[in-house]
Design a protein around this nucleic acid. Structure first.
Lengths: 246, 246
DNA sequence: ACAAAAGTGTTAGTTCTACACCCATGA
DNA sequence: TCATGGGTGTAGAACTAACACTTTTGT
C-alpha cells in the first residue's frame, strides 16, 4: 500500500528529471575542501534558513559522464575549471534522503511531496575537491538554498541527510591519498614555506608533526624546489620558500 | 535529433524497470574473487556464447539500499550469505554500455534496441567480494548468459564494456586493503599454514615475498594463533597450522 | 643419508623519533 | 641581548631485506 504510493511519487519525479535530460534517482555531491586560517574548511549550503546545512550537488545529464557532471556542477557553482576531483564513495541507503527537518519544512510551507529533488529516492556519487583558498566565489541560484559558508571541519553545523558521514569518509580518503598523490599542492598557493606545509598536514590529520622530521621527510621525497627566502617582518629566522616540482 | 531519439529509448527502458520496482539507469557489479590453485581467480559470465565475458551484476530495488542490492544479487547467484563485500568504484562513463560485440549480436539476432538491460545508459556501483574456494555454486538464470567460469587473473579472456578496467581497480583496492582490514581470512579456509598465506599474498601482489621475513611480519602483528602442526605425508618439516584471531 | 621445505637467527642497512643545538631576525 | 621560530645534527630504537643455519619429515 504505502510502498505502492511511494513508488508512484518516485515515478512522477523521475519523469520530471527525464524531461530535463537528467538521470533519475542519481546525483553527485561534492565535498569541497579549502585550507584557510590554518584549518581545513568545507563548503556548506544552508537549507532554507533552517540553520541546517548540506553539501553542494547536482544531477547528471543523460549523455554526460558522471565525472563530467561533478566537474560541471562545481564549475557552475564556483567558476573554477582546474579542480582536483576524486570520486570516493557512493551513498546508497534507501532512506537517506528523507530527513525530518526537510519533510517538516516542506509540509509547513505547503509543498507537496512531489515538489522537487529533496525527498525522492536518490543515490549519490560523492567526490571531494581541493581548491586553493580565495579562488572560489560560490553563487547561489538553487531553490531552498539560503546561504553558503566555508566551515572549519572542527566546527561543523548540523547537517542534513547523511552528509556528515559523507564528509567523514571524504576526510579519510583525503588522508589516505594526500601523500601518495601529492594532493597538498592543490590546497596551498605557491610558493609556500615548510611550516605552512606542516600546518596543512596537521589540519588534515588533526595531529602534531615533529618539526625537524617533517621537514626531512618532505625534502627527501624530492618533490619540492626552494625558490628563495621569505623576508617577512617577523621576529625570527625567515623560512625558505618552496614550489611543487612538476 | 539523434540524442532525442536515444532519450526516448532510455525513457521506455526506464519505465520497464520502474514497473518492476527497480531503479533505472543504475546497477551493481561485483568482482568476485576466490583463491584457488595458488592463484587469484575471478568469476566471469559468458555473453551469449560469444567467447566474450562479463562481470555478474544486478539491479537495485526502489526500497533497497545499494549495499543490500549487491549482497542480494550475490546471494541469488551464489547462495552465499556471509560474504565480505566492499564498494570500491562507480563506473559512470556515458558510453560505457555500448559495446560493439553486444550491439552486433543484438542486431544479428533481431532484437530491437529497447530489448533489455544491455545497451541503455547505465551507471554501475562496483563491489568486490571475497569467498573461500569451493563454497560457491553459481547458477545461471539470466538471459544472454551462456556460461560462468572462475578465471585466473593472469589469464583473463576478452571482456565486455569497461569490465577489464573495473577488475584492475578491484585488484588495486584489494591490495590496498588486504593488510589494513585483514581481508585474507576471507580467501583462505581455516586452518591454514604460513606458506599458504604467503602464496596468497604472492598471488594478490604478483610478486615474491621472502619466506623468513614474511613469517616474522605476520606473526608480529599478533593476529594469528597456532592451532597445531600439519601432519602431511610430505618429505619435509610439517608446517604449523594457524587460525585467524577474532 | 639425502632432498625438500619449514622454522629460526644474524647482520647490515635504512628509516623513524625524539631531542639538542645552532642560526637569523626584530624588538 | 633576548625571545621567537626556522634549519640542521645526532644517537638510539625500530624496522627491512638478504641470507645463513637448523630442524623435521619421507624416501
Amino acid at each position: 500500500m504505502d510502498t505502492d504510493k511511494n513508488h508512484e511519487i518516485n515515478l512522477q519525479a523521475s519523469e520530471k528529471q527525464y524531461s530535463k535530460n537528467l538521470l533519475p534517482s542519481l546525483s553527485v555531491n561534492s565535498v569541497l575542501f579549502s585550507y584557510h586560517n590554518e584549518a581545513l574548511n568545507v563548503l556548506l549550503l544552508e537549507f532554507a534558513e533552517t540553520d541546517y546545512f548540506m553539501l553542494p550537488g547536482g544531477f547528471i545529464k543523460n549523455d554526460e559522464d558522471v565525472d563530467e557532471a561533478a566537474l560541471r556542477s562545481l564549475k557552475e557553482r564556483t567558476g573554477l575549471n582546474n579542480i582536483y576531483l576524486e570520486q570516493f564513495y557512493v551513498a546508497g541507503k534507501a532512506g537517506r534522503t528523507s530527513d525530518p527537518v526537510v519533510l517538516e519544512y516542506l509540509e509547513k510551507e505547503g509543498y507537496t511531496t512531489t515538489a522537487g529533488w529533496l525527498n525522492q529516492r536518490n543515490v549519490s556519487v560523492c567526490y571531494f575537491a581541493l581548491v586553493s583558498e580565495k579562488r572560489v566565489k560560490p553563487e547561489i541560484k538553487e531553490n531552498f538554498i539560503s546561504e553558503y559558508k566555508w566551515t572549519d571541519l572542527q566546527k561543523l553545523p548540523q547537517l542534513l541527510f547523511d552528509h556528515y558521514d559523507i564528509i567523514q569518509k571524504a576526510i579519510s580518503r583525503l588522508q589516505a591519498d594526500i601523500d601518495q598523490k601529492l594532493l597538498f599542492h592543490n590546497l596551498l598557493s605557491e610558493p609556500f614555506t615548510m611550516p605552512e606545509l606542516r600546518k596543512l598536514y596537521e589540519a588534515v590529520f588533526q595531529k602534531q608533526f615533529t618539526r625537524s622530521n617533517f621537514q626531512r621527510k618532505m625534502l627527501k621525497r624530492n618533490i619540492l624546489v626552494r625558490v628563495g627566502k621569505k623576508l617577512e617582518g617577523r621576529a625570527n629566522k625567515a623560512p625558505y620558500l618552496y614550489k611543487f616540482k612538476k
